[in-house]
Simulated scan of single mutants.
Amino acid sequence: MLDEAVQALRGWQRDDLPFQLHPGDLGWYRRFGAEATDEAIRIWRGDGRIVAVGLLDGADLLRFTIAPDARADEELARRLAEDICTPERGVLPAGTVYVESPRGTRFQELMFERGWQSDEPWTPLRRDLGAPVPDPGVRVEAIGHDQADLHASVIRASFEKSTFTEERWRAMAAGSPYADARSLVAFDRGDAVAAVTVWSAGPGRPGLIEPMGVHHDHRGKGFGRAITVAAASALRELGSSSALVCTPSSNAGAVATYRAAGFDQLPEVHDQRRD
């Protein structure tokens, strides 16, 4: 299931399209293991091909995208809306739930017509990788299996409720999307101060940063900007056309960090919510 979904998502990534579900999102979810990842993936087919892919990212959030050439398809939009709005079909449960999907699709219009509402805003950001990326100004190392615990520990120290562990790093790295990914750690005088994982969707396509974190003991010193610059450089080496990231608009510090690392702020996006 994972490999099939990733292959479809890779082909749908383009710089001229709105921010959408990326192969790296599935790769990052793979930290929960192969079985859990397959259970979280939703695939819709039509005319002998995959036309939509979703990731149930927790019990109440479906992260979801549609093949670019099918986003105005009325019949498909109605089929998707019916599947997602009907708890008995096993896509989302009853009660308050959320859907993340690309803006500007017929599917989104139908969801609003069914009474769904816009939720809190998110800010996508993009950095073009056509030109070389400057040196980040700190020592940055690519992390392999022998240092999985180091990368995981920095991510845990960066997010209050993180459950990322060495075992989960290894599960993530065992997934097929990680063949086009890199994990990086930034150092200051021997201390690991920031970490990131980047995900390529293939040469000439946008790459994704997910996650990026700065150790809580080393914030306010520019290490977030530095590791983000290093992430952009790593994606360029992997052949990506651009680097993408998305963060809650309420997290002004994260938005400022990405902008300081050369990312352009794109129009806000919203999940849709059913109460």
Results as ranks from 00 to 15, higher is better:
residue 112 F to P: 07
residue 96 T to D: 12
residue 108 Q to T: 15
residue 111 M to L: 15
residue 116 W to I: 11
residue 102 P to W: 10
residue 91 V to D: 01
residue 97 V to L: 04
residue 99 V to T: 00
residue 93 P to Q: 02
residue 109 E to Q: 10
residue 92 L to Q: 00
residue 100 E to Y: 15
residue 112 F to R: 04
residue 99 V to R: 01
residue 103 R to I: 14
residue 87 P to L: 04
residue 88 E to P: 07
residue 106 R to M: 12
residue 111 M to P: 04
residue 105 T to S: 11
residue 113 E to D: 12
residue 101 S to E: 12
residue 116 W to M: 14
residue 87 P to S: 04
residue 98 Y to I: 12
residue 87 P to Y: 03
residue 100 E to L: 14
residue 114 R to P: 00
residue 96 T to Y: 08
residue 106 R to L: 12
residue 85 C to S: 11
residue 103 R to F: 11
residue 109 E to G: 07
residue 92 L to D: 01
residue 101 S to D: 09
residue 106 R to Y: 12
residue 108 Q to P: 12
residue 93 P to K: 01
residue 114 R to C: 09
residue 102 P to S: 11
residue 99 V to Q: 00
residue 89 R to F: 08
residue 109 E to L: 06
residue 95 G to C: 04
residue 97 V to Q: 04
residue 94 A to I: 05
residue 106 R to V: 15
residue 90 G to S: 05
residue 100 E to K: 15
residue 108 Q to A: 15
residue 108 Q to E: 15
residue 102 P to F: 10
residue 113 E to C: 01
residue 89 R to C: 07
residue 91 V to Q: 00
residue 99 V to K: 00
residue 104 G to V: 04
residue 90 G to W: 03
residue 96 T to L: 13
residue 108 Q to K: 13
residue 113 E to V: 10
residue 101 S to V: 14
residue 114 R to V: 13
residue 104 G to F: 03
residue 116 W to F: 11
residue 107 F to V: 12
residue 88 E to N: 05
residue 93 P to D: 07
residue 100 E to F: 15
residue 90 G to N: 05
residue 103 R to C: 14
residue 114 R to T: 11
residue 102 P to R: 12
residue 101 S to A: 15
residue 103 R to D: 15
residue 85 C to D: 10
residue 112 F to L: 14
residue 99 V to M: 01
residue 95 G to F: 07
residue 85 C to H: 05
residue 92 L to Y: 00
residue 116 W to Y: 11
residue 113 E to F: 02
residue 105 T to V: 08
residue 101 S to I: 13
residue 93 P to L: 01
residue 104 G to R: 06
residue 90 G to Y: 02
residue 105 T to L: 06
residue 105 T to N: 03
residue 94 A to L: 07
residue 104 G to D: 05
residue 104 G to L: 06
residue 93 P to R: 01
residue 90 G to F: 03
residue 105 T to Q: 04
residue 100 E to C: 15
residue 115 G to W: 10
residue 97 V to H: 02
residue 85 C to P: 00
residue 88 E to C: 05
residue 98 Y to S: 11
residue 94 A to W: 07
